[in-house]
């Protein structure tokens, strides 16, 4: 994964679009153009304690002068969204990375099926906008509690028109994975939202014959398995043959860094993708929320993922 510039951007606009979601438009104080991005990309917002949070860009990739993100207040979260909503008023400065895309549209697809759950609408909105502009064939399912609590609903309606299906549970229309049918040729499925929604959707789609390559998911929360018990494993670096021991008490990333392997890191919770590396052999226990299904056969996220036995890294 490549390095990304961290810029000090100014909040040009800050307004609540629902009771708990703040829309922020960020501009550079001196550069008229920001680094380019494609639909599905996110930026890292650096908090005062140096930790980072990922937010999908929900604006128009063709508009190079600003980035737009929507930040939902997560009362049970780690405090990042609360700080952002309280501190990032108009005129405030925020450290924001150049965009990265872990959730890109498939160029070869003939039809795109997009599913958004709640605040997961942010990348889906950008994707729908790009697809509509390109005249591509697509359909969007938007699931939320109710219309007034659904961020960016009006924008999505304007872009999609008849191509949008809304599922508001308070209206008695709860989305279930059963709304997804068997894939047409070169149809791709994209989902962004709560873990439960994505897991159900992925399992259902696989059972209907969708291939892992056709399923793209973005979840801004790493997998948390309370029952997971880490165990020791070995890692071998294919370039040097060096063998390292990863004790249950440490992470693969920490062991690599301790042995002088230069690694890029950012979130260290399995969601940003900074430290992704390739592996050539081994039984990986994937615990990240960033790799697509099709990538898991050859890529690993060393900040959270582990292995059984010996893992051979292409480093």
């Amino acid at each position: 994964m490549s390095a990304r510039l961290i810029m000090k951007l100014r909040v040009a606009e800050a307004r609540f679009i629902t009771d708990d979601t703040l829309l922020l438009r960020l501009v550079h104080p001196s550069r008229p153009q920001l680094p380019a991005w494609t639909a599905g990309a996110h930026v890292d917002l650096v908090l005062p304690d140096g930790k980072v949070r990922q937010y999908s860009l929900c604006g128009d990739p063709a508009e190079r002068g600003s980035y737009t993100i929507a930040v939902k207040r997560e009362e049970a979260g780690r405090g990042g969204s609360a700080w952002i909503q309280e501190s990032l008023v108009e005129g405030a400065l925020a450290h924001v990375s150049a965009p990265r895309n872990n959730f890109a549209l498939a160029e070869t697809a003939s039809h795109h099926l997009l599913v958004a759950g709640g605040i997961g609408v942010t990348p889906i909105l950008a994707m729908a906008r790009s697809l509509a502009a390109a005249g591509a064939s697509f359909r969007v399912h938007y699931c939320a509690r109710s219309a007034p609590t659904a961020p960016l609903l009006e924008e999505l309606r304007d872009i999609c028109g008849e191509r949008l299906s809304c599922w508001f549970s308070e209206d008695g229309r709860r989305f279930t994975a059963a709304a997804i049918e068997a894939p047409r040729d070169e149809e791709h499925l994209y989902a962004c939202g709560p873990l439960g929604l994505i897991d159900d959707l992925t399992a259902h789609a696989l059972s209907l014959g969708w291939s892992p390559e056709q399923i793209h998911a973005e979840k801004f929360q790493a997998l948390r398995d309370e029952d997971f018990i880490p165990e020791d494993f070995e890692v071998e670096l294919s370039s040097t043959g060096q063998r390292l021991h990863v004790p249950a008490s440490s992470t693969l990333l920490a062991v690599l860094q301790a042995h002088g392997v230069p690694m890029r890191t950012s979130c260290e919770t399995g969601i940003c993708g900074s430290c992704i590396c390739d592996y050539s052999a081994g039984d990986v226990i994937h615990r990240d929320a960033v790799l697509q299904l099709a990538e898991r056969s050859h890529r690993v996220v060393p900040c959270v993922s582990r292995a059984r036995g010996t893992l051979t890294l292409a480093l």
């Binding site: 390095a3 990304r4 510039l5 961290i6 810029m7 000090k8 450290h95 990375s97």
Partner: peptide
């Protein structure tokens, strides 16, 4: 101020 941060 730190690695990757834009120069001022």
């Amino acid at each position: 101020p730190a690695a990757s941060f834009e120069m001022e």
